[in-house]
Design a protein around this nucleic acid. Structure first.
Lengths: 196, 196
DNA sequence: CGAATTTTAGTGCAATCGTTCCAGAATCGC
DNA sequence: GCGATTCTGGAACGATTGCACTAAAATTCG
């Protein structure tokens, strides 16, 4: 019926993720995007609709490939408390490896675009809630397994863990060292450990 | 010798603070700034040098009027542990009162402009270090007063407090409720409290 | 007052913004 | 091969960007 698309949509999306992740929404131009994605401007509008619509696809892809993948993988291979610990440790490792200090696209977006675009704000908040839900699920499981201190509140602790994760992401974007990031996170992990 | 300036530089700076605070560096245009500051574009360049130079003045004014003022005031009127508690409580109160969810200009800048401008990055990091230094100073004083749990590490705890503050600021920008913000902060404050 | 100096509003500039349009190329059912 | 359809690179759109320039207005010193 019609001409076939020449470029790989997933590869192009990955390139767009890198663009928005590096420079933020406002500072990334459609021309930058098209160049990095290896396509023409017309193809971008043809395939993705425009800058904003592309950004929604980018957020979704980032969530799938980064956040959801990590949650599923760690939850499948670790006991509850260790899943939380491994999640934070992995984020620290990746943050330190990233020379560009890109931080987390969801956190960057929460501060950059969410306040000025209610719909995108709800999307970002939804993804953050998925992370918190992961924390909450595993804190509850750890409580049920009797591995946590007495009186642990899963709801409150999951919020605290999300906040600590956000703060660590902010500091990692400013180029913090490993010792700093671990000092941010450690006390939160200690709350899951029975006092001895 | 020369004509006197018609506008009040401090009032104009305050208006510029609001602009950058609301919309971020990139998304704020010089024309927006001039209009909100009540001056012409030429006056802006004349008095402040340009957008970037103005932003540095804005960061300085924000730090003086918001962060440093709060630190000095609370440190003068509270005992060490209560100064930290009051600091976080005040930030929560102000975050909830702010309908625009502007968050903290320093945090917003740390994610928005710092990674792309090394010099501004150092400026922002410096202001954040002042906050951490406030935490550290008061944790040390609390330790010296014997008010903290045994084995409290002032350096590590001050980093944790800074991270928790950053995280709370991120979540406040997404429109979090009081219960959420307090849940983020409470466990960090508990670390200053002797177990009973 | 006259000269010197600096602020002011307004306009202009080259560049870039997100987006659209266009002509040509490629692919399908027929 | 043909018509229909969708893709492609490239040019062009109006709007806006940060910044520079001009002439008039205002102030202080001599």
């Amino acid at each position: 019926m019609a001409r076939l698309r020449e470029f790989d949509e997933d590869r192009a999306l990955d390139a767009a993720v890198d663009c928005f992740w590096n420079r933020g929404y406002e500072a990334t131009s459609v021309r930058d995007l098209a160049r990095e994605m290896g396509i023409g401007g017309a193809s971008l509008y043809n395939a993705f609709g425009g800058k904003r619509a592309l950004f929604e696809r980018v957020l979704e892809r980032y969530a799938n490939r980064s956040t959801r993948e990590r949650i599923a993988r760690l939850e499948a291979s670790h006991r509850p408390r260790e899943a939380i610990r491994a999640f934070l440790a992995e984020v620290i490792d990746r943050s330190l490896k990233d020379r560009d200090c890109k931080g987390c696209l969801l956190v960057n977006s929460a501060l950059d675009v969410a306040p000025h675009d209610a719909e995108l704000g709800r999307v970002v908040t939804g993804y953050l809630e998925e992370i918190r839900s992961f924390f909450r699920r595993n804190v509850e499981a750890a409580i049920a397994a009797g591995e946590t201190p007495r009186g642990t509140d899963a709801e409150a602790l999951s919020i605290h863990l999300l906040g600590v994760l956000m703060g660590m992401r902010v500091l990692s974007r400013t180029g913090a060292r490993r010792r700093t990031l671990e000092a941010v996170v450690q006390p939160a992990l200690d709350l899951l450990e029975k006092p001895h």
